[in-house]
Design a protein around this nucleic acid. Structure first.
Lengths: 112, 112
DNA sequence: ACCAACGTACGATGTTCGTCGTACGACGAA
DNA sequence: TTCGTCGTACGACGAACATCGTACGTTGGT
């Protein structure tokens, strides 16, 4: 029996339920912003393949914050959990927000 | 002798020193977002004239968070402290970010 | 000179947050 | 079946945070 039927399904709020302040809070952490930035280049990634240096359990925590804010979507696939950006949903609910933020973050990284 | 010469000057980072994650964190609080939203309509306001329901000392705290992130500018004038949005500075450093966020926040408020 | 108004500084308090180690469950391969 | 891998859940811990009350300094008017 697959994991998806033995464990509670992952919580993914609908765009109508997104809270902008939750999204901003989710993006105000360097580890989480690195995750989001990485996902803009790769459409879908496994959990362990992000260029961050934190413990696995810490990464799980950050994924939950992003997921419950509506920033990412995760799906089960055997032993892996694939993560993708909910770019379209965010664009529908908060037009221009994610794009402006990630663009600004990348320009900040290449500047100082 | 005016207050500005007897107390340490207010800290106002230059646009080059802005940290996007600090800005996002500053904006991820409902009280502070209300301050920002209010400042978009009125160019400059005294501290006690914001439609927030927190204690004065709490308001001082929120102003400091916004000020040190570069979101607002404050100047002394007699017994009052006037607060203004640093819209142009933010636009220079992080184009489109503040506008997208405040617009999204206002659309969220009118749309439960 | 006095006093009320404005806003700050400081300390206290309860909560949230980021981090980790450990234990565990599910899956895939040998 | 046995074992290693992937990722989670839980508990713990220190730091940061939002909030407040109180005391205080400055200012402007009476």
């Amino acid at each position: 029996m697959p994991r998806s039927q033995r464990r509670p399904a992952l919580i993914h709020p609908e765009p109508d339920e997104f809270d902008l302040l939750d999204v901003l809070h989710a993006l105000s952490d360097p580890t989480r912003m690195t995750i989001v930035q990485t996902l803009r280049a790769a459409p879908e990634r496994a959990c362990g393949t992000f260029p961050v240096e934190v413990a696995p359990s810490t990464l799980t925590h950050h994924f939950r914050v992003l997921r419950e804010a509506g920033v990412i979507r995760q799906r089960e696939d055997g032993n892996r959990r694939w993560t993708a950006l909910r770019g379209e949903d965010l664009e529908t609910r908060f037009p221009g927000v994610l794009d402006a933020i990630v663009t600004a973050y990348e320009s900040e990284l290449t500047r100082p």
